[in-house]
Design a protein around this nucleic acid. Structure first.
Length: 288
DNA sequence: AGCTCTTCCTGAAAGC
DNA sequence: TGCTTTCAGGAAGAGC
């Protein structure tokens, strides 16, 4: 599942190959994940790629200006099973490949997505567009102070908050669980209840985990491969994710699984203490 | 504000 | 063996 480290790895691969290349043709398979398929076919041929960037879990390809075009970029989200590979035109086509863009060096940009949870849309010219305003801070670019701003005071469970792209952009299920384990924080803790010390540990854990995952080119749990078709290796370093029943690397206690924020959540019940018996349903007269 | 549930989609794995 | 069910989980929307 592509999260920040996987998307970052793909983007770095694309940065090494795409800038300067011109798109010569666009061919599409299934298009239900593309906002405006005919616009892609119409606008992209002839355009030169200027650069490739990551924004949270989004990939942005920027193009040179073109007379008569209102679009300057292509926004791509890999969803759950999206893959981008740049390969020779005669390379075997993997099943579920739905976007082909021929390049002027004789190679081909291919987008493959088994479940089509991904998305693709053209970005209009100008600074806005793409809905980036709703995205929060990049956890790797954030200072500890900025990180705290997104977390402290919130009444949501910490796991839900780490997954919320409006607070921090780029975290997904794997890296929230791994970060919470490292910081010894239970996924159902209320963010506002975390101590200063815990917030600092969480900030450091998030940075450590994300940087470590990028160094190993992401986690290949099922489908993920980078732009050269290579699997990542961070899955070998997972400490809790999908380790239900296995021993905690720190204390040997069996890892547990529960649903938090609608997601499978793995944690060590000993290292990550559950919050105190929830003072629920208090009949608060809280106005505001 | 924040929770749960549903939808999208396919394939692997588990259950009967 | 062969069918059905469950799970995977990014994001958006409904409803509470």
């Amino acid at each position: 599942m592509p999260e920040l480290p996987e998307v970052e790895t793909v983007v770095r691969g694309l940065q090494a190959t795409l800038p300067g290349k011109r798109i010569v043709d666009v061919r599409l398979g299934k298009t239900d994940f593309i906002e405006d398929p005919s616009a892609l076919e119409r606008e992209l041929p002839g355009r030169r790629v200027l650069n490739v960037r990551r924004y949270g879990k989004f990939i942005v390809l920027s193009f040179d200006a073109s007379a008569g075009s209102d679009y300057s970029g292509l926004l791509i989200h890999l969803g759950m099973t999206g893959q981008i590979v740049v390969c020779p035109t005669n390379a075997p086509v993997r099943p579920h490949t739905h976007v082909f863009m021929g390049l002027d060096d004789g190679r081909e940009f291919r987008y493959t997505d088994i479940r089509r949870f991904g998305s693709m849309q053209l970005l209009p010219d100008g600074p806005n567009g793409g809905g980036f305003e709703t995205l929060g801070t990049d956890p790797l670019e954030a200072t500890e102070r900025e990180f705290r701003t997104q977390i402290s005071g919130r009444r949501a469970r910490i796991k839900a908050l780490l997954l919320d792209q409006r607070a921090l952009r780029g975290m997904g299920n794997i890296y929230t669980d791994e970060s919470l384990w490292r910081a010894r924080i239970h996924p159902t803790r209320i963010a506002a209840d975390l101590s200063d010390k815990e917030l600092r540990k969480l900030y450091q854990a998030v940075q450590w985990i994300l940087n470590g995952a990028i160094r190993l080119r992401g986690s290949s749990v099922s489908d993920y491969v980078d732009s050269e078709g290579q699997r990542g290796e961070f899955q070998l370093r997972h400490r809790v994710y999908q380790r239900k029943g296995k021993k905690c690397f720190r204390c040997g206690t069996a890892i547990e699984r529960m649903i938090v924020a609608g997601r499978s959540s793995y944690f060590c019940p000993r290292c990550q203490r559950a919050p105190r018996g929830r003072a629920r349903k208090k009949k608060t007269g809280t106005r505001r």
